[in-house]
Write a protein that binds this DNA or RNA. Structure first.
Length: 279
DNA sequence: CCGTTCCTGGAT
DNA sequence: ATCCAGGAACGG
């Protein structure tokens, strides 16, 4: 569900909603959501959400002290603010109650999401977070960075590399397909076959598409909503994702769907020419 | 690198 | 009934 633009939109929505609200209770209805070895969320009672950070698809919250709450929404996780407490819904797994009667609920149909409560030093123990690649919207991100990180895997398919959070943090299946289309690169092209120009187009497309998706508050394909339960708008700008059988916006030929790295991949067979047999 | 696994629900 | 889903860790 949520990739970088959606997680960033959740972050921004909560930044508008949660400050100045004192936590009066934390309830965990489904213990598996809390990563093993982490601290007890009950220690947040009496504190307030102060810092609202993001790294890749991870949300990082601070409370004015050394505590760090890390949240990964995985496929179907939602952090929902309610101005007034509501009856617990079927897939509500964690609830923060605030002194003014409002609440923040973590709802996750598939329960793949995870919470980690730790301190600044403990962030290095959070699996995944401790080995993320560069933020694609960081000023230092560049085609050179991308090339340097994929250089040792010349035979890997480019789509698998885009989805690898150790290389670039935050792309998922939707934006990987959109980036590949924008760069005119077929998802099965081996890394080693990409030209310098193609790498530059990929890096530029990552930045442009993600920034545009954030500006449009993310993509709601199925479940995604922000902290206000509001859908995104970028689904109206998708070029190829979930467009099997529809005409390519560039050339008019038919968008195809194949499996790459175990994931559905949508592409234009003309604008994104397949790898040559020797590649 | 690939398949499997964690879950539930919607589509076919 | 079966397959599929926007993520990512894990094992072989």
């Amino acid at each position: 569900m949520p990739e970088l633009p959606e997680v960033e939109t959740v972050r921004r929505s909560l930044l508008q909603l949660l400050p100045q609200k004192k936590i009066t209770a934390v309830e965990v209805f489904k213990p598996q959501i809390i990563a093993a070895g982490g601290a007890d969320l009950a220690q947040l009672v009496g504190r307030e959400f102060v810092d609202f950070g993001r790294r890749g698809k991870y949300l990082l919250f601070g409370f004015g002290g050394d505590e760090r709450l890390v949240v990964h929404l995985r496929m179907t996780g939602k952090l929902l603010y309610h101005a007034e407490a509501l009856p617990r819904e079927k897939h509500d797994h964690v609830r923060f109650a605030f002194a003014d009667g409002s609440e923040l609920v973590y709802n996750d149909i598939r329960a793949f999401g995870r919470f980690w409560l730790t301190d600044e030093q403990g962030l290095t123990e959070v699996s995944g977070l401790n080995s993320l690649g560069m933020e694609p919207l960081d000023e230092e991100f560049s085609a050179e960075y991308w090339r340097s990180r994929v250089a040792k895997r010349p035979r890997a398919m480019v789509k698998a590399a885009l989805l690898d959070q150790h290389i670039v943090a935050g792309l998922g299946n939707i934006y990987a397909d959109e980036v590949l289309f924008a760069a005119g690169v077929h998802p099965e092209r081996p890394i080693g076959s990409l030209t310098a120009e193609e790498d530059s187009k990929l890096a530029a497309a990552m930045q442009q598409i993600l920034a545009n998706a954030i500006a449009n508050r993310g993509t709601t394909f199925r479940d995604y909503v922000d902290g206000n339960n509001e859908k995104g708008g970028y689904q109206n700008f998708l070029q190829v994702f979930q467009k099997k059988g529809q005409p390519c916006p560039n050339c008019g030929c038919t968008i195809e769907r194949i499996k790459v790295a175990g994931r559905s991949s949508f592409f234009c067979p003309v604008c994104q020419h397949p790898p040559k047999s020797h590649e």
